[in-house]
Structure formats: structure tokens, C-alpha cells
Computed example of a mutant assay.
Amino acid sequence: MADPVTHQQHRPVRIGVQLHPQHAEWSDIRRAVVAAEEAGVDIAFNWDHFYPLYGEPEGKHFECWTMLAAWAEVTERVEIGALVTCNSYRNPELLADMSRTIDHISGGRLILGIGAGWFEKDYDEYGYEFGTAGSRLADLGEALPRIESRLAKLNPAPTRHIPVLIGGGGEKKTLRLVARHADTWHGFGDPEVVERKVRILDEWCATEGRDPADIERSCGVEGGPEQTAQQLHDLGVRLFTIGLNGPDYDLGPLRDWLAWRDQVNAS
């Protein structure tokens, strides 16, 4: 099996920011995504939930995909996407059409981040069947080919191959779906956890006949780059995403990661 650093060597480091669409006004979120782009971030993500994930559980919150359409208009360079879309909330063909539309609005900057879903309150409050982790993963496995099929039929076609990012670390099902369908795998955890996941992902790539070099490794990070950045980079991670909460969306931690990115990419 190829060393993860070797088969990811050609990829530059990229920095993402996840702007949590909770506890903030739209004006705060709009200002934050514009400021993140001006700071030099590569990708701006939100998330696909209907209620805050922490803090006041009934606090302010905005919807994911209508927000992405607005981001497409207020930004010019940065890629945008959900980290991640909940597959349960939208018909797969509709999600493909939404993705194609925002792809055009943004001039080819959408990343289709998707996962099986997990936040039970969203399901209960909005009338979706929660099911089980297994049933939600099975639904995701059925949806991904339908999304791909619909994207191929739409008129006008997408402006580019819309990159698919799959989030999750399940070793038996999720990582196999990544090997089949994804351009980027997004995970989380300390370097020891990530090391295991990338090894298993490479094994699934071998099973599925996929070149592991085709799949970018992504990880959510906390703190500064001096803590885990080099270890994760050594494991082949090339996309590092920092989460910021509203309403202030302090870009200070993000700037440290951007400086580290520029230093690594210049070396």
C-alpha cells in the first residue's frame, strides 16, 4: 500500500473555515464569509442543521442551502459548501439540481459536502424519519448514484465536475462510500485516529479499484497549527478546517492557519 504522504504529495495545503450558522444574525454571517474570503481562506463551509448544535438549543439559526446561494453572490473566489449536507433532508435528484444551480451562481465554486445525518432533534422537529445509523447510511449509499445520474442529465450541465466531499469515519460503510464516490474525505480526531482512518480508506480504495491519490484527505482542527498540523500533514491530510461560532466569528485562529499554509506550500 502506498504511503499516504507519497500519494497526497502533489496536493497543496488548503484551509477551510466552517462558519456555524447559529447564534448570529444574517448580517453577521454575511460579514464573516466576506472577511474570510478577504483573509485568503480556500473554502467557506456552513452546516446543514435546523437548530444550534451547542449553546442555547432554541437560539438563532439559519438554513444551509439557501445560505449557500447567498454566499455564491457575495463572494468571488472562495469555494463554498456544507460541512456537511444531511442526505435525509432532500430528495437526491433535487439536491443534485440545487448543487448545479449554485455551481452556476458561483461560477464553479460549489463543493457538495454530504453525510448520512445524525442530529435527532432536526429529524423530530421537521418530520423526517430518524431511523437508525445503518438505515441512514444505506440511504446515503442509494442517494449518491442518483445524485451522480441526475447531474449528468441536467440542462444546462454543471460548469465543472462538482467535487463531492463525504464526511464521517465509519470504517465498514462510510469509508467504502468515500472510496466509491468522493473527491474528498472529511474526518476528525487526533492524529492516531486519523492515521487509522486513512489506512482503512486506502484499503477500501484497493477493494474498489480507486486510486487513493484521487481522494483528498480533510480534517477538522482546533487550536493553532503548532499542535497537530505537522502530524496530520505527515498522514496526508491536505485540507484543514477551523470552526468559528457567531455572532463575532473571530478570524484570529484562522489567520494562524493561513500563515502556516503559505509557509508549507512555499517550501
Rank of each mutant, 00 (worst) to 15 (best):
D190F: 12
I242K: 12
E37Q: 15
H7F: 15
R160N: 05
Q8T: 15
V78Y: 07
R217V: 01
L112W: 07
A82M: 04
N155A: 13
P225R: 15
D190S: 09
S106Q: 11
T241V: 09
I29G: 13
V41F: 12
D48K: 00
P163G: 02
A32F: 08
W47R: 00
R146Y: 05
R217P: 00
L151Q: 05
H49M: 08
P4M: 12
P253L: 04
K153G: 07
Y128F: 11
A24K: 04
D42W: 02
A96H: 08
Q9C: 07
V264N: 08
K121M: 10
L53C: 01
G220I: 06
L232S: 03
W185L: 14
V84H: 00
A44V: 15
D250H: 03
E79G: 04
Q231F: 11
D183S: 05
I200A: 12
D250S: 03
I162F: 11
M67I: 13
C86L: 03
A133S: 11
E216R: 06
D211P: 15
E148Q: 11
F45R: 06
C219I: 07
G220Q: 11
P163H: 11
E195T: 15
E129K: 14
A96S: 06
E76T: 13
T207K: 15
Y54D: 11
E216P: 03
G167M: 10
F240A: 14
I105G: 13
V237M: 05
L258P: 04
A39P: 14
G224Q: 03
H10S: 12
W26F: 14
E76A: 07
G108F: 12
P158F: 12
C86D: 05
G209M: 02
C219R: 06
L232K: 07
G115F: 00
W47S: 02
A133K: 07
V5D: 09
L144F: 09
D248L: 09
E208Q: 08
A266H: 03
G59P: 07
H7D: 09
A96T: 12
T241C: 07
S267Q: 14
N87Y: 04
V84Y: 08
E25C: 09
A69K: 08
G108R: 07
P4W: 04
E203R: 15
N155P: 06
